[in-house]
């Protein structure tokens, strides 16, 4: 039987699964760190870039990163490559990577 404690832990996952437009919600997702490391190839190790067009992501506001990625994905904001990249991620993955970068000092 599920204890309340466990149920509470499950709630965020359930909420994501119920969101519309999430093709791969049922699939396991990579950790924020794994996802963030793939961003590092353009945005710098740990999201710290140096004086380049690709901005640093380290310490970014969580909501700001979620909004940016979602806007890119839905083509509400234009960019050189981020529109194409953002289309590869669901809401849960965007939240995980936003958690990861927002916590880096």
């Amino acid at each position: 039987m599920l204890k309340i404690k466990n149920l509470r832990r499950l709630l965020p996952a359930l909420a994501f699964a119920l969101l519309p437009g999430m093709a791969t919600a049922q699939q396991a997702i990579a950790t924020g760190k794994m996802l963030g490391n793939t961003c590092a190839s353009c945005h710098g190790t740990h999201g710290k870039s140096f004086d380049e067009y690709m901005p640093s992501l380290a310490g970014i506001d969580r909501q700001q990163l979620i909004r940016s990625m979602t806007d890119y994905r839905e083509d509400r904001r234009v960019s050189v490559v981020m529109n194409r990249i953002a289309k590869g991620y669901n809401d849960a993955e965007i939240a995980a990577v936003a958690d990861y970068f927002s916590k880096i000092k």
């Binding site: 950790t31 961003c39 190839s41």
Partner: peptide
């Protein structure tokens, strides 16, 4: 081992002021 996630982004120059790119996410 945790769930993998991979990207390939590749910019090429068709001229010094003319880039073309490909960007893909892999599972």
């Amino acid at each position: 081992p945790g769930e993998p996630s991979m990207i390939n982004v590749c910019y090429s120059l068709a001229g010094q002021d003319y880039g073309v790119s490909i960007a893909d996410i892999f599972k």
